[in-house]
Structure formats: structure tokens, C-alpha cells
Design a protein around this nucleic acid. Structure first.
Length: 145
DNA sequence: GCCAACGTTGGC
DNA sequence: GCCAACGTTGGC
């Protein structure tokens, strides 16, 4: 059974266009236990991913990715510290226009979605299937606009 | 640049 | 184990 996720990245550090260029990338650098546990314990190869631009203008979902490699130790983690991990993600699609956070917050169909909640800093989040599908539809709608 | 939210650290 | 201080995230 497929699962659905949202991962955040600051586009100045790594944007959807970077993923489009690279095709796939190691999702290293996660230093939050809850996010780590999602990657390690729940993410599966093939799971669908919303690629979210944080600290951006505007912040929002920039495209789609897929988990393409299983969780393994993060080679960028400092030695002697906690056991951090990473997954590999692959490019799927870039939305022609970002689906802005404002838009997500305003959509009744997305009520309760974690990323719309104030103070939600988790950089790897589970997403409900219905929410995922809704955002894909919004991304396609942006493509027509 | 500001600051609210929240996770982590460290003194006790 | 409490909690104040501190650092980071991330929207605005």
C-alpha cells in the first residue's frame, strides 16, 4: 500500500529544479528525531512525495517526487552522535506554478493537513492520500492557468 | 529582519 | 525529572 509524504527544502539550498536536473538525490541532513523515524520506520520505496519549498516566496508545494531508495545511515551525520538516516528520492514532476501555502490553507478539502498548521516545523511529514490527490489536482490546475 | 513555535541542552 | 536558556525553523 503506497504511502504519501511531504518533504521540505529551502529552494536556495535544494529546489525542485535541482531535483529535476539531478533526477534523484540523497535526502541527507535531516536532524529531527520524528522526521528521522518516519524515514526509517515508515517510508517505503515507491511512496509518493510532495516536494515543498520552505522559506520561499511564496512557500508551497513545488512538485512531486518518489521514494527511490530505502532508509540507510546518513553519511553526513557527525560521528559519535545520534544515528541519523536518509532515503533517496527521485524526481517525478515539477508544477509549472507552485501551489502556495495560502492556497492550501484556504482549501476546505485540505483541512487538517499538517503543513497548514501554524508552528509545524517537521521537515518530513505523512500526508493523507486524499490530501495528496487534491494537491496533485491543484498542481495540474496551475498548469492550465 | 522579526518573532512565534518548538526542539534540545544543561544546571540543579 | 523539571524547566529556563538557547538555537533553529519558517511564515510573514
Amino acid at each position: 500500500m503506497p504511502r504519501f509524504w511531504l518533504v521540505k527544502s529551502e529552494p536556495g539550498a535544494y529546489a525542485i529544479d535541482d531535483l529535476a536536473r539531478d533526477g534523484r538525490t540523497d535526502w541527507t541532513g535531516v536532524r529531527n528525531y520524528q522526521a528521522r523515524n518516519f524515514m526509517r520506520d515508515a517510508m517505503r520505496v515507491g511512496d509518493a512525495v510532495l516536494f515543498y519549498h520552505s522559506n520561499a516566496d511564496p512557500p508551497g508545494v513545488a512538485g512531486l517526487a518518489r521514494v527511490s531508495g530505502p532508509a540507510r545511515p546518513d553519511p553526513t551525520a557527525p560521528k559519535g552522535g545520534p544515528d541519523w538516516c536518509m532515503v533517496e528520492i527521485a524526481f517525478v514532476a515539477r508544477f509549472p506554478e507552485i501551489v502556495p501555502l495560502d492556497r492550501l490553507k484556504a482549501d476546505p478539502a485540505l483541512k487538517g493537513m499538517l503543513v497548514t498548521k501554524r508552528g509545524m516545523r517537521l521537515s518530513v511529514q505523512p500526508v493523507e492520500e486524499a490530501h495528496y490527490r487534491r494537491i496533485v489536482a491543484l498542481g495540474r490546475r496551475e498548469a492550465r492557468a
